[in-house]
Amino acid sequence: MEVDKGKGEAEETRKVAEADRDTVTLKSSDGKLFEVSKEAAARLSTVLAGMIAGGSIDDNGTDLKQIGSEALENVVDYCNKHANSIPSAALISSSISFNTAPFKEPEEWERKFVDRLSHDALFDLVEAANFLGMERLLDVTCHKISEMMKGKSPDQIREVFNIKNDYTKEELEEIRQELAWAFYDD
């Protein structure tokens, strides 16, 4: 995916490219370049769609200073995989109501895609998806994180996510009482 071009090559690309390009080049915070299909980028990321429509895409690599190369590689990888998969009905329906399932379940390949990520990479990807306004990728990553929480006690959740408990004993007791309804075992 990565296209770490030399400067000369990049210049060349710029001359050839311009209007007709069907890919966009994205640049990570550490300066690595990635190419992704313009169509997929615009479809999956509201921010990239806005940038493409607004003409603020830089052919030398649009600077995404907030995203590291590992996360950006995953983003691009996701876009490419997405472009190749057949969109299911779940992806087409948009409006959410009581009559429809509240969330679109991840597809099999999407599950696999996030399952292989390390803990750190998963969270970097969530932040990147959020930053780029990639609703679907955010769905998939949030789904994964909620799976990691499901059925766990607060202590276990703290352990999984390394959350430091900064409450005093008394405060914790108070909150537990307030939330007695939530701690009831059905």
Partner: peptide, 24 residues
Amino acid sequence: DVLHSILARLPSNADAARTSVLSR
């Protein structure tokens, strides 16, 4: 926003509410 979207996927509101005790 992202945390809401994660908690919204838990099986119930009680599961989401219990995260109150994690930290401030």
